[in-house]
Amino acid sequence: MKADPNAQKLLLDLQGIDTTRQQLAHRRTHLPELAQLTELTRELSTLDGDRVRAQVEVDDLDRDITRLERDTEQVRARKDRDAARLAAGVGPARELEALQHEIESLDRRQRELEDAELELMERRETAQSTLTEAQRRLADCERRRAEAEASRDAALAEISEQEAAQTEARKPLVTQLPADLVTLYERIRDDAGGLGAAPVRGGRCGGCRLELSGSERARVKAAPPDEVVRCDECRRIMVRTAESGL
Rank of each mutant, 00 (worst) to 15 (best):
M1Y: 06
N6I: 04
A7M: 01
Q8A: 02
G16Q: 09
I17H: 02
I17C: 01
I17N: 10
T20M: 09
R21S: 09
Q22C: 01
Q23K: 13
H26I: 05
H30T: 14
L31G: 12
P32N: 03
L34N: 09
A35C: 02
A35W: 00
L40R: 08
T41I: 01
R42G: 10
R42E: 07
S45Q: 11
L47D: 05
L47V: 04
L47A: 10
G49F: 00
G49L: 03
V52T: 12
V52H: 08
R53W: 00
R53K: 13
V56T: 15
V56H: 13
E57D: 08
V58E: 05
D59F: 03
L61Y: 09
D64H: 05
D64T: 07
D64G: 01
D64Q: 13
I65K: 04
R67N: 06
T72G: 15
Q74H: 06
Q74Y: 01
Q74C: 00
V75W: 04
A77L: 04
D80W: 04
D80K: 12
A83K: 15
A83Q: 15
A83I: 11
A84Y: 03
L86W: 02
A87I: 04
A88Y: 03
A88P: 01
A88C: 01
G89F: 01
R94L: 07
E95W: 07
H101S: 13
H101V: 13
S105M: 06
L106H: 06
R108W: 02
R111D: 08
D115I: 12
R123D: 04
T126Y: 02
S129E: 11
T130W: 00
R137H: 08
L138N: 14
L138P: 06
A139I: 00
D140S: 09
E142L: 04
R143P: 00
E147R: 14
R152G: 01
D153Q: 08
A154R: 14
I159P: 07
S160Y: 07
S160V: 09
E161Q: 11
Q162T: 05
A164G: 13
A165Q: 11
A165V: 05
Q166R: 14
Q166E: 12
A169S: 11
P178Y: 00
A179D: 14
R187D: 06
I188Y: 04
D191G: 12
G193H: 10
L195Q: 12
A197Q: 02
P199I: 08
V200R: 11
R201H: 12
G202E: 10
G202R: 13
C208N: 06
R219L: 06
K221F: 07
A222D: 06
A223K: 10
D226T: 15
D226A: 15
D226R: 15
D226F: 14
E227F: 08
E227S: 13
R230F: 05
R230T: 14
I237Q: 14
I237T: 12
I237H: 11
V239W: 13
V239R: 15
V239N: 14
E243P: 08
E243Q: 15
